[in-house]
C-alpha cells in the first residue's frame, strides 16, 4: 500500500474549496492493474483529482506512468480497476467520458502536413466544435501557445519546442475538465520548457484539473498540488510536496562525488546511525541523513577512510528526489 499523506478534501480546503466533500473529483481511478504478458506494468494504482488541481505522477522511465494515463484516457482497458471522469465511467468506447478529457501524449501527436491552425481545427471538430466558436477558440489557443504568427505554416517546419506547444494546444482546445499531460517537456530546450510550464501553471488558475506525468523532480515540485510517486508500477506515496518530504523524517540529502573504492565507502557510511539510506552511482554516493550538518564530518571520514577519494561534497535540503531515494532505495533518474 502506498503511503498517503493528506487528502484531496484537505487540499480543496487549501485552494478555497469545501472540506466537506462538496467538490466532486474530476477523476477517480481505483485499483488500476494492467499487465503486458508476464510484466505487471501497473499494479493497484488509485488516484483522485479535484477541479483546478494539478496532480503529478512522478516516477522514473518505465515506472508505468504512461500506462496509467492510457487507462485513464480510455486507450487501454485495465485488467482490474475502474476509471471515472466527471462522474462518467471510462472505457475504450466511452464517448461521453472522453469528451471530458484532453490528452497530450508524450509523442508529438500532430499531423506534419497540416498547418497549426488545420491541426487545431481538425481535432476541434472531432471534439464536436464547429463554426465560429471553433474558429475563435483556435485563434485563442494559437495565441496561448505562442503560434499565432505561424498559424498557416505546416507544422513539419516547426522547431521541436513549437511542435510541443502545438501538441499541448490541441489537448486544451476544447477546455476539458481534465487535461492529461504525458511528459510534455521531454526533448525540449530550456526556453520552450519554461514556456510550457508557465502555460500549465496558468491552466490550474482557470479551474482545469491537470494530470501531469514527469520524471523531472523539479517540474513536479513547481507545478503540482499533489504528487503520486510511482515506481515499478506501484504507488509508493501520495501527498503534497511538503507532506511527502516529511516522509524522509526531514532528512537532508548528502551527495558525495569522487572516485576510488565507492563500494567500501557505501558500506562504511551506511553504518553511521544518522544515515537513513545510501545509493551508489559509479562516481557518487547519495545519502539521506538526519542532521546532516553535524554528521557530515563523520560521513566524510568514513568514506575517505574506506578508500573513496572525494572531489565534492554537497548538503541539500530534502526534496522529492530524497523522498524517492528514501522510499525506493534508488535515485529517480535510474
Amino acid at each position: 500500500m502506498p503511503t498517503t499523506v493528506g487528502t484531496e478534501a484537505q487540499n480543496a480546503d487549501a485552494r478555497g474549496g469545501s472540506a466537506t466533500g462538496s467538490v466532486e473529483p474530476v477523476l477517480v481511478a481505483e485499483g488500476l492493474v494492467r499487465s503486458f504478458g508476464s510484466l505487471r506494468a501497473v499494479d493497484g494504482v488509485s488516484l483522485r483529482i479535484l477541479p483546478g488541481e494539478t496532480f503529478g505522477l512522478l516516477g522514473p522511465n518505465g515506472a508505468g506512468k504512461t500506462t496509467v494515463i492510457s487507462m485513464i484516457a480510455g486507450l487501454l482497458q485495465p485488467d482490474e480497476g475502474t476509471v471515472t471522469v466527471a462522474g462518467v465511467p471510462m472505457g475504450r468506447s466511452s464517448v461521453e467520458a472522453k469528451g471530458h478529457i484532453g490528452l497530450v501524449p508524450q509523442d508529438l501527436a500532430i499531423y506534419p502536413e497540416l498547418s497549426a491552425r488545420d491541426n487545431l481545427q481538425f481535432f476541434g471538430k472531432l471534439q464536436g466544435m464547429h463554426g465560429r466558436p471553433l474558429r475563435d477558440r483556435v485563434a485563442e489557443v494559437l495565441d496561448l501557445v505562442g503560434l499565432g504568427d505561424r498559424a498557416k505554416e505546416q507544422s513539419k517546419k516547426f522547431s521541436g519546442g513549437m511542435k510541443r506547444r502545438l501538441n499541448i494546444g490541441i489537448g486544451l482546445l476544447h477546455q476539458p475538465d481534465l487535461l492529461i499531460l504525458d511528459e510534455p517537456t521531454v526533448g525540449v530546450d530550456p526556453q520552450s520548457r519554461n514556456a510550457i510550464l508557465e502555460s500549465v501553471e496558468a491552466l490550474s488558475g482557470e479551474g482545469m484539473a491537470v494530470l501531469y506525468t514527469t520524471h523531472y523532480m523539479e517540474e513536479a515540485e513547481r507545478l503540482c498540488d499533489r504528487i503520486l510517486i510511482l515506481d515499478s508500477g506501484q504507488a509508493q506515496a501520495e501527498g503534497t510536496r511538503d507532506e511527502l518530504i516529511e516522509l524522509t523524517g526531514d532528512a537532508d540529502r548528502v551527495h558525495l562525488s569522487g572516485s576510488g573504492d565507492l563500494a567500501a565507502a557505501e558500506g562504511a557510511v551506511a553504518g553511521i546511525p544518522a544515515v537513513a539510506s545510501v545509493h551508489r552511482d559509479p562516481h557518487a554516493l547519495d545519502l539521506t541523513v538526519r542532521g546532516a550538518p553535524t554528521a557530515i564530518a563523520l560521513i566524510v571520514n568514513a568514506a575517505t577512510g574506506a578508500g573513496m577519494k572525494l572531489s565534492n561534497v554537497e548538503i541539500r535540503r530534502p526534496d522529492l528526489e530524497s523522498v524517492f531515494l528514501h522510499l525506493t532505495g534508488k535515485a529517480l533518474r535510474d
Binding site: 492510457s70 484516457a73 480510455g74 486507450l75 475504450r92 468506447s93 464517448v95 461521453e96 472522453k98 469528451g99 478529457i101 490528452l103 501524449p105 508524450q106 509523442d107 508529438l108 501527436a109 500532430i110 499531423y111 481535432f123 472531432l126 471534439q127 464536436g128 490541441i170
Partner: peptide, 15 residues
C-alpha cells in the same frame, strides 16, 4: 507510431 492514433482514440467517438 507517431502518436496521433492515440490522440484520435482519446476523442469522444467510437474507435
Amino acid at each position: 507510431g507517431q502518436g496521433t492514433l492515440g490522440r484520435l482514440l482519446s476523442m469522444p467517438m467510437k474507435p
